[in-house]
Amino acid sequence: MFVRAYLRASTAEQDAHRARARLDAFAEEHGFSIAARYIENESGAKLVRPELFRLLGDCQPGDVLLTEQVDHLSRLTEPDWRQLRAEIEAKQVRIVALDLPTSWGLAAPSDDFTGRMFAAVNAMMLDVLAAVARKDYEDRRRRQAEGTAKARAAGVYKGRRENTARNEGVAAMLQAGSSWLQIQEAMGCSRGTIAKVRQRLNSAAAVQA
């Protein structure tokens, strides 16, 4: 059994590495080691997340996916959550989340009956928390949209300010031939941000040509 940690943050402004100390402490407390870490800056409302699916692709039956919170794994719609859960079940991966105590027993070896009991209870709780996480996401989006509408009506909406210093660093690394993964790790940005900067560089190069 391998334990693979999944660390996710929604945006480049958030630090996906922040949870590492908590996951390491949990692993030490429960007597196991984390074999690999998969880190990405992507929304939990998106099903397509490269690092999450790379983690699942690396897993063997019985491996553990360790994450800080269930909403780091899913803020998905119900159909997308069913699809992700089907992938997890097909790989026979055990989900252990720090905010889901019913899952903690899955990180330790157990007899067949106990393992099946833990898995059944955990599957039910995962469904509940995934639904709660999606509702929280939708509520926050609704409140943000209402706030934006009010700001626009009052003539004070300015939109999100671009992180120009970070984007200049991304551009420099792209021009130096760095891989997207290296840029993500160095700059703490999403693949979407890199794609936007890459598009700007290509547009600028086309104009100069």
Rank of each mutant, 00 (worst) to 15 (best):
A21M: 12
E42C: 11
R140K: 08
L23F: 02
R37G: 11
L100I: 04
A133L: 01
S74N: 06
P61K: 06
R18F: 11
A97T: 03
R85W: 07
Y38G: 08
H72S: 05
A130T: 04
P50Y: 00
G105A: 04
T102F: 06
A108P: 06
P101D: 11
V121G: 05
A145H: 09
R143A: 14
A120M: 10
S43Y: 06
W81G: 08
R94I: 05
Q92W: 00
L100K: 00
R116Q: 11
V48F: 12
K91N: 12
L66I: 00
G31Y: 00
G105F: 07
K46D: 15
Q144E: 13
A119G: 04
A131Y: 06
F53G: 08
M125C: 11
D139G: 00
L65I: 07
I88P: 07
L73G: 04
R116N: 11
D63E: 10
K150Q: 15
P109C: 12
A151Y: 05
L47D: 03
L23E: 09
M125R: 05
Q69N: 13
R94T: 09
M125K: 03
A123T: 12
E87C: 07
E78Q: 13
N122Q: 05
W81S: 05
Q69V: 09
R141D: 09
T77I: 00
L98G: 08
E138Q: 14
L126V: 10
V132N: 03
I88M: 04
E29N: 14
V96Q: 01
I95S: 08
D24A: 15
Q60P: 04
A130C: 01
R54D: 14
R18H: 13
A145K: 13
G147I: 07
A130F: 03
T77Q: 13
Q83F: 12
L126G: 01
Q92T: 10
A130M: 08
V132G: 04
A130I: 02
T77Y: 01
N41E: 06
E146I: 07
L106Y: 02
F32S: 03
